[in-house]
């Protein structure tokens, strides 16, 4: 049976023309090191929280660069702050500290 009717199409495109990249600059003033990430996935492979759901610290790093703050804030809640990501990163990124910062973003933007 074919179903007819309307369907809401969610736009998955990253619109870099509209993305808020000012926050990236603000983040760069607050924290250093995260710019070095090369997306190798070591953090996601070892992450305590990633094993249990869809949380993915590497992807969060990438969303930051694309100014996708809503998604960053939603994701960061899942981090358990265990710090394993830090041990394995070849570019010496303190992902745990980033997540801590993004958890604050959550409380500020969604009271």
């Amino acid at each position: 049976m074919k179903s007819f009717g309307f369907q809401k199409i969610v736009d998955r495109q990253i619109d870099l023309d509209k993305a808020d990249l000012s926050l990236v600059q603000a983040l760069a003033r607050e924290l250093t090191g995260w710019q070095r990430c090369i997306g190798c996935g070591s953090c996601s492979a070892t992450c305590t929280a990633a094993g249990m759901g869809s949380f993915n610290p590497r992807k969060v790093q990438m969303l930051v660069r694309m100014g996708q703050w809503d998604q960053v804030a939603q994701e960061a809640v899942h981090c358990q702050l265990c710090g394993k990501c830090r041990l394995v990163c070849p570019r010496d990124v303190d992902t745990r500290q980033l997540m801590l910062e993004f958890k604050k973003l959550q409380t500020i933007s969604r009271p």
Partner: peptide
């Protein structure tokens, strides 16, 4: 994806963990 760690199993084989970054799955 870069392998984050390896472990040895009882039969001497090696268990590795990585992220397949292109499908975003551990």
């Amino acid at each position: 994806g870069r392998i984050s760690e390896a472990a040895e199993s009882s039969d001497g084989s090696v268990i590795i963990k990585a992220e397949d970054t292109l499908t975003s799955r551990p």
